[in-house]
Amino acid sequence: MTTTLLNADKIRLDGRKLDELRPVKIDVGVIKNADGSALIEFGKNKIIAAVYGPKEVHPRHLTKPDRAIVKCRYHMTPFSTDTRKNPSFSRREIEISKVIRQALEPAIILEDYPRSSIEVYMEVLQSDGGSRCAALSAASVALADAGINMRDLVAGCAAGKIGGEIVLDIDDTEDKEGEADMPTAIMPSLGLVTLFQLDGKLSESEFQKTFEFAIKGCMKVYQIQREALMNKYFGQSEPMQESTE
């Protein structure tokens, strides 16, 4: 059985155009107990990210004398999928935790916090494809909210190929029925890629185009991240111009 992912006018199943992102919304500071937190709604995805630290490392022997270590936990709640998901860590969740950690590490200035650990928890409340990029984007906002020194925010977005066309921001059905999925994350101001995966087959020109699409998506996510942080910290206010100290 196959689903038709694109109609004759090249409109996708959920009514989006080829280069259209799902609606994205980020709330900052949703968890009072954490040092920093964010809730992202990326289409039907709902993910909470919380950051604790920097704090002392447990177990002790993992301590790095010259920098902080990052611990990442990406987890899907049993009710996040249409059939119940086993709450224990799957192979997939372990992998995503690792790639998100590796995508965040270059952005955090780890040398500023020697002998400490920064813990990032991402809990998927509802999932609909592209959740690793959404979780990563939320985590980077939560890190900024926690006041940890960062070189840049990290913004993630996937692109891919469905029904022979290159599209931006693949959702769950498109991921399962489509031909390729390319989750990408970048540090937008520095122009560096920190996460890049590709599942499927693409020709060289298709690869180029998909990558460009993904970067475009990341930049859109980045704008939303910035607005969310600005909104939480400054609202509509204008910066004061006199000195305070």
Partner: peptide
């Protein structure tokens, strides 16, 4: 007092 201020986020 001549210092210019603006709001920023990481990056």
């Amino acid at each position: 007092s001549s210092v210019k201020r603006k709001y920023v986020v990481p990056g």
